[in-house]
Amino acid sequence: MIEVSRYRPAFKPDLRYAYATGRIRALESRQLRRQDIERLIEVRHPEEAVRILTEGGYGGELPRLEGWSDFEYMLEIQQRSVIDLLSELSKDTSISDLFLERYDFYNLKVLLKAKYSHQDLDHLLIGIGRTSIDLLKKAVMESDYRGVSGAIKDIIGWVDTVWEGMLDPQLIDVAVDNRMYDRFLSIVVPFGNRFLHDWLRLEIDLANLRTFLRLKWLGLEDIMDQVLVKGGTIEELKFLSLRGESWERVIEAFRKTGYADVVAEGVGHLLDASSFSRLESLSDGLIISFLRRAKLQPFGIEPLIAYVLLREYEFKAVRAIVVGKMNGVADDLIRERVVNGYV
């Protein structure tokens, strides 16, 4: 079990990353802080939030940013610059490729959801990744697998056969995550970096927890053994043994683990408000706390990985705030979704 609050990265300095670590430390000082996030939440109009972000360097590479309509483009430029930085500074191409592939899997989820919900979700696609969006679209929509990796082809085929007819599009996330984590484990385990492996195990544990609670909530516990990801620190058997148990029993089962707060508060909010939002934000918060432990590592790939992932959480928070503002969501609701990750 990974105890995030007590986690110490192994002191095995990798001097190949001395330059990268120096550069990351300088960039970290420009990341949004808790008070910046609060300031963004408190603005009245989304245009104001975009203006604050632009002044803070978000629109730095844009010749002109005219309003919130350019917002997604602005974020994509930032995301691309972070991935470019990783490719430039990483001495291990397998790791930078892994982070590019995360975008392929994200786009794949969007396209599969679009296919099964018969909606146009193109505005959610992010043009970063190892595989172009056009090739992914052809693979998902027309089963034309030219130019896509074997892993992506497998996922599409698997989802098509197993998940067609499922009514909850969230389950597509579960299906794609399942295969994605399998793929990542096959890269990270041989790489032999403890921090990276522990991060992935934490991600898998939390993904399994969310899947378990979602399936339990939807009454689909019978398919649980098909979708849980192997490779985390929580045994698959533990989840399977909790099928059909009461919510109190589930909370009790995780009470002595590092996930006690996530489960207790997440389930509490789920039962009160029929929403998974608290569970999602607490999961994000736990991973963010873990990534911040990389500050204890003087040199190595850890600060670089942590920076890339923390920026992704920052983009997620910024997107949630601006989209929330555009849709007139109350400040408190935005804060509930976003702020936990920045505590």
Binding site: R23, R25, A26
Partner: peptide, 14 residues
């Protein structure tokens, strides 16, 4: 050598 590498990384941004 180690310090200078880190310093170069920092100065490339600042």
């Amino acid at each position: 050598g180690v310090t200078a590498q880190v310093a170069n990384g920092v100065m490339s941004e600042e």
